[in-house]
Nucleic acid binder design. Structure first.
Length: 459
DNA sequence: TTTTATGATTCGTA
DNA sequence: TACGAATCATAAAA
């Protein structure tokens, strides 16, 4: 300590060397009573001032205050202050120079980006709605989708509010503290060498400190958002079985399009709408269903028969209505809308018998090319243990004219249903894959009335 | 508690 | 990019 003082005094006694010629250089009048005297006198004067400064702490407060005032008014004060500042600057800058640069913190940038993306920072309007929508979409499910969506948004808004309140608090505190420190330093600069540059630097340090606190706030906000998101993603992973009705609709479509269980995009949309699920859930369902069906056809046989009977009964009713309708109308009703070729129909009808046998005997996907020797009607009865009116549909249809077939197509919407009264894996090829088949473009429930649109059968 | 069913995800492929 | 296959995770049944 004493060494430092001595060194400083030594440095200051050579102020002229530092470029501040006390004699005229700064326009200062020479020390009183020593006008025109030599350098020894000036040194003596400066040494005296420095001594007073160094010993000021040893004195009582009043004494020190008085001395301080005296020193402030001393004519050498500005020069001395300037020199001290310069020395301080020189030593200080070399130390802090490296810290002066403020490279953008990558972590802070990441946090900022995330907060912006999540809608926590950035514009208020619709804040987070995109993220919320994404999370809600990922959550899947229809009915409670909107509930989850709004729940997510409410929580996000809460986080956003807390974030902004805290941020505002920090900024306010930062400003207050900065102002306070600046005032303090300005005040102190009257008695000790503090240059404006140094004050500026101090402000920078304060801001950095506060921004590190802000980063903590941003980090915890991000964490909160992540937790919120993960909770919604968990909700997605928390599987919920589809409703019985939805499963039925999907199964009906699957087994009635067993030859080609690949619903088109339109069909998927329609199914999704009917089942109150998303299109991707429909895709998932069909993906799972196809693979699980193929893996163990035997296991699904009962289910297949069930849906076959179900849809066939519906189809029968529809056909009966259609026949009645056609009979009620003139027998000369033109078959303007029917486009399916008669040969095709015959062929499909025969194929259905084959597939029926396949179901009965094997359940294997590769063996549907059994001899065409089965009796559809009998098979149905033996399999289901119940009379199967729908089995007669094929015969009826074959015996009726195009008008009726047209009516059937219009009524049921499922050409496959008629072709395969008992749904079978006839569409599976020997390699375990489904044959290429035209993709149906529309979905129609067998429960639907005749007014429905059946684009997949009208071409 | 164990097993089965089922919706979702991931990854490789054509 | 849609699909198959494998797998995960959880609901539901045994």
């Amino acid at each position: 300590m004493m060494e430092e003082q001595a060194r400083m005094m030594q440095a200051l006694s050579g102020v002229t060397l530092a470029g501040h010629s006390v004699q005229g250089g700064m326009g200062l009048p020479p020390p009183h009573g020593h006008e025109g005297t030599d350098g020894d006198g000036r040194k003596q004067d400066i040494g005296d001032i420095l001594h007073q400064i160094m010993t000021i702490t040893d004195q009582s407060l009043d004494e020190a205050q008085a001395k301080k005032h005296g020193l402030n008014c001393h004519r050498m004060k500005p020069a001395l202050f300037s020199v001290l500042c310069e020395i301080k600057e020189k030593t200080g800058l070399s130390i802090r120079g490296a810290q002066e640069e403020d490279p953008p913190d990558p972590q802070l940038m990441r946090l900022d980006n995330m907060l912006l993306a999540e809608g926590v920072s950035g514009p208020e309007k619709g804040g987070g709605s995109a993220a919320a929508a994404a999370a809600a979409a990922a959550a899947g499910g229809g009915a409670d989708n909107s509930i989850e969506h709004s729940d997510y948004r409410a929580k996000l808004t809460q986080i956003r509010q807390i974030y902004h309140t805290e941020l505002e608090k920090y900024e306010q505190a930062c400003n207050e503290f900065t102002t306070h420190v600046m005032n303090l330093l300005r005040e102190q600069s009257r008695t000790r060498p503090i240059s404006p540059k140094e004050i500026e630097r101090m402000v920078g340090i304060i801001h950095r400190k506060f921004s590190s606190i802000q980063m903590q706030l941003k980090q915890s906000t991000c964490e909160a958002v992540m937790i919120l998101r993960s909770r919604f993603l968990d909700a997605r992973r928390k599987r919920r079985n589809f409703s019985k009705q939805a499963t039925e609709i999907l199964n009906e479509y699957f087994y009635s399009h067993l030859s080609n269980p690949y619903p088109s995009e339109e069909a998927k949309e329609e199914l999704a709408k009917k089942c109150s699920i998303t299109v991707s859930q429909v895709s998932n369902w069909f993906g799972n269903k196809r693979i699980r069906y193929k893996k163990n056809i035997g296991k699904f046989q009962e289910e297949a028969n069930l849906y076959a009977a179900k849809t066939a009964v519906t189809a029968t009713h529809a056909v009966a209505a259609a026949i009645q309708n056609s009979q009620a109308n003139s027998p000369t009703t033109p078959n303007s809308g029917f486009q399916m070729k008669d040969e095709e129909f015959q062929l499909d009808s025969a194929e259905s018998k084959n597939s029926l046998l396949t179901n009965m005997f094997t359940g294997s996907s590769a063996s549907f090319n059994l001899p065409n020797s089965g009796d559809m009607f009998m098979s149905m009865q033996s399999l289901n243990g119940a009379s199967y009116q729908g089995a007669q549909v094929g015969a009826n249809v074959q015996s009726q004219g195009d008008t009726i077939r047209h009516a059937i197509n219009q009524t049921t919407g499922y050409s496959d249903r008629l072709r395969h009264p008992l749904y079978s894996p006839h569409g599976l090829n020997g390699n375990g894959g489904w044959h290429d088949a035209p993709t149906p473009t529309s979905v129609t429930s067998p429960n639907e009335g005749p007014g429905s649109v059946h684009s997949d059968t009208s071409n």
